[in-house]
Design a protein around this nucleic acid. Structure first.
Length: 610
DNA sequence: ATAGGGTTAG
């Protein structure tokens, strides 16, 4: 075979992403002794990269007799495809230094993409400068990659500036810009851009919809999806579906999620790993763990995300042993855990008080898998120590950990001190926090409670003053109950519901029954200055209680009551919900701002720590 | 021969 024939074959293996074909060609080329004939070294390198054989590509790159811009671009593509963009940037630094090459427009575009995926803002801007000074400064493809880069950096205005400099805008640059606005919460600009775009295809629709979902505008995402279907766009790829299933998870919209599941099946994407992973997460977040497991066990191929999703799901629903058992099975089936998997595992241990196991997993993550812990990992470990009452260990960790703890980390430790009645430590931490900048309203409330508990009224009023000065407002609490065909939102203290008389009557009845079995309201979470009776009245009207009462009246008897709350459940409501689960003999699921509570027979899956 | 846009877990 001739060289040009081999080149064609290599390209074919690249487009078909067939690693066996690529290896076979490489062997044949070596046999015929044509391996040094231009352009075969670069062509092979590119083929390996596109087939997913990064290691082979990297090795060929190292062995190249001489490197040019094509080898450079090909190795960058290989790294970018394999999620190793960081390595792409490291290699590029050495090429510039050792080989003294100036990047061409192909290399620049790949470099920009690498910077975008790893979030290397400074380096990305350097590449931008290099581009402007290069002979390729007018290249629209590089500009379009830069629109995407700035969008991913969270700088949509910079992206727009580049976009406006493009001489001939393509559907790709339009899509980058639409996605840039949508992902960064610039809803109206995204939609405006979308309607102005010369062409709309499934990718631009997906970019808009998933961008909106990512920025927390899931409902708008669904309206646009309906519009998309009305326009008759053929869903020839399931990407947009994964995104919308994710939106259902965020919204805890079980019925809508089930409909999306149906659509996935109807369109024939049941075996798509991305949508199945999204479905696992959706069912778990909608408190339907059984359906989540059902999806998981019926998947013929599972990747690290599938395993991690089900492990996290079990952990969030208080099934620590199950999460750990799943982890063992995962390792046995040859799937390598990643940083998210360990987050889920340590979280599971934290929930179940398995201090030693959690510590062991943390160690294994670092030593066996070479994962360097992030702030999230340390926060999880901190939580593990705090919850189980190892407060000294926790304080020691927060002071020594190599990443800077944030305000929520300190607040978590503080609330653990309060829970385990270590007043001295609590006051020491509270004083430190009081002297730093406080961003979260919940921290003020925590501080106020600590000082009030210790009788330090001067500090209590100091916290109050700070709250006034900084205009800290407690977010109004609401609970949403999903009854299948309808759902209803209750706000704290709300009395406008058409069934309010019946709801109130039931609440009074339940309250009386609870008192009979020894319930005493815990008013410590009521922040306002008022007498005991008034405080109790405040608690009585908390939104989750209204929602539960309504659920008991309206939901099909015997079914689980599912509630989503925007804030965290207060201590008193937690006790009340446990009692109601016994009195009414009903299972109640509450997804609050922080975790999941599954109330059954007077107990909760969170083990009373949240 | 080489480049740019949209999916899943925290």
């Amino acid at each position: 075979m001739t060289v040009s024939r081999y080149v064609l074959q290599c390209q074919l293996s690249a487009t078909r992403k067939n690693p066996f074909f690529a290896k076979k060609l490489h062997a044949q080329i070596l046999k015929t002794g044509l391996d040094r004939c231009e352009p075969l070294p670069n062509t092979l390198l590119d083929a390996y990269g596109k087939c997913g054989l990064v290691e082979h590509a990297l090795q060929l790159f190292e062995e190249l007799p001489q490197r040019d811009n094509i080898s450079w671009a090909s190795v960058l593509t290989a790294c970018n495809l394999a999620n190793r963009s960081q390595q792409a940037l490291v290699i590029s630094r050495s090429i510039i230094k050792v080989d003294m090459l100036q990047p061409d427009h192909f290399v620049l575009a790949s470099l920009v993409k690498a910077c975008a995926t790893v979030g290397a803002v400074k380096q990305g801007k350097q590449v931008h400068a290099r581009f402007l000074l290069s002979p390729f400064w007018e290249d629209d493809v590089v500009k379009s990659s830069m629109v995407d880069m700035y969008s991913k950096f969270g700088l949509p205005d910079s992206a727009r500036a580049v976009f406006d400099s493009i001489s001939s805008v393509s559907s790709i640059s339009w899509t980058s810009m639409i996605s840039g606005y949508a992902c960064n919460g610039r809803k109206s600009e995204a939609i405006e851009m979308f309607h102005k775009a010369p062409h709309r295809n499934l990718i631009s629709w997906t970019a808009l919809i998933s961008g909106l979902v990512q920025s927390g505008n899931g409902v708008d995402g669904f309206y646009l999806f309906i519009e998309m279907q009305k326009e008759g766009i053929n869903i020839e790829e399931p990407l947009v579906l994964s995104s919308l299933v994710g939106a259902c998870a965020n919204l805890a919209a079980l019925e809508l999620g089930k409909q999306m599941h149906g659509l996935v099946i109807t369109l024939g994407y049941e075996s798509c790993i991305f949508t199945s992973n999204a479905l696992i997460d959706m069912y778990a977040k909608c408190s339907d763990l059984l359906s989540a497991k059902d999806i998981f066990y019926n998947m013929c191929r599972k990747d690290v995300v599938s395993w991690t999703s089900i492990i996290v799901a079990a952990a969030q629903h208080g099934q620590a042993e199950e999460a750990l058992a799943l982890y063992n099975k995962m390792v046995l089936s040859g799937i390598r855990p990643n940083e998210v998997t360990f987050l889920g595992l340590v979280y599971a241990c934290s929930n179940a008080g398995l201090v030693n196991k959690g510590q062991e997993l943390f160690r294994s993550m670092v030593e066996d898998y070479g994962i360097s812990p992030s702030l999230q990992h340390y926060t999880c470990l901190l939580d593990l120590f705090s919850r189980s009452g190892h407060l000294d260990k926790a304080e020691n960790l927060i002071k020594r950990m190599p990443v800077k703890p944030d305000e929520p980390s300190w607040a978590a430790l503080l609330s653990a001190c309060k829970r385990h009645s270590d007043t001295q430590k609590a006051i020491r931490i509270a004083d430190d926090l009081l002297n730093s900048k406080i961003e979260y309203p919940s921290t003020y409330i925590l501080l106020s409670n600590i000082y009030a508990g210790a009788g330090m009224w001067e500090n209590v009023s100091k916290v109050r003053r700070l709250m006034m000065v900084n205009e800290v407002k407690k977010q109004p609490g609401y609970s949403c109950i999903d009854l299948g065909k309808e759902s209803h939102v209750f706000y704290a203290g709300e009395t406008s519901h058409p069934m309010k008389d019946k709801i109130l009557a039931l609440m009074i009845e339940l309250n009386a029954e609870m008192r009979r079995i020894g319930y005493v309201p815990d008013t410590s979470s009521v922040l306002h200055d008022m007498d005991q009776q008034e405080k109790e009245r405040q608690l009585f009207w908390h939104s989750e209680r209204l929602a539960v009462a309504y659920g008991l009246l309206k939901a099909i008897p015997g079914t689980t009551i599912r509630i989503v709350k925007n804030l965290r459940v207060c201590g008193d409501c937690h006790t009340v919900l446990k009692l109601i689960s016994t009195i009414a003999g009903r299972e109640i699921y509450v997804r609050d701002a922080k975790r999941y509570h599954h109330f059954k027979d007077g107990n909760c899956s969170c083990n009373d720590f949240w």
